[in-house]
Amino acid sequence: MSADLNPNTAINLTKAVVLVVETTSHAADILSQILKGFGVAETHRITSIREASELLKHKAFDLILIDPDVEDGAGYTMVRNLRASMVEPNCFAPVILMSGHPRVTRVKQARDTGANFFVSKPIAPNVLLQRILWVARDKRPFVEAGVYIGPDRRFKFEGLPPDSDGRRSTDIKDPLGAANGPDMSQDDIDNLMKPQRVMI
């Protein structure tokens, strides 16, 4: 079991409403059974993009699990349209893409749909639960930039791109320059972080 999945931690998915969009009814059955085991009481199983899009207009979902290869890749477009619709709350619902054999041409497409996470099939209960907990705890903000709407695609900040001044107000535009003065000793550094008793 993964370190993220402490067997004693309680989870409550009894009130969660989940949409499953799958390529076949058997694949939908597999996911529905796993979700049932997790305690999800309301799962909607769909194998058609048209039906899924229609349902998303009328019913609020807390989680959307979709195989983007449904109807020859129409699942990617469905997620992108969902984000762009700005119809709340579904346009902000966590979306997990679950795809089987990876076609090289589809990798970038997956990244740009606005989904929260991409999971490779075959689906195992522990992997699915880990990803559900991950998207629930995901702290990334949503970004609306041109044609892209969805969670920030950057998982960590690795500095500005080369030869760029950055666009954020917090980006440091001036070079830091060379250090001046002597280096701090290890004791000086330790003292910066050492808890000290304060007398009031």
Partner: peptide, 29 residues
């Protein structure tokens, strides 16, 4: 570029009292 933080309903549901342990959830699945 607009950055914002929509409400995460799934996170709130997960934290509600009741439910099952992760160990039981995996076993039930």
């Amino acid at each position: 570029v607009r950055r914002f933080r929509p409400e995460n309903r799934l996170a709130k549901l997960l934290e509600m009292p009741g439910g099952v342990s992760i160990g039981s959830a995996l076993n039930n699945a």
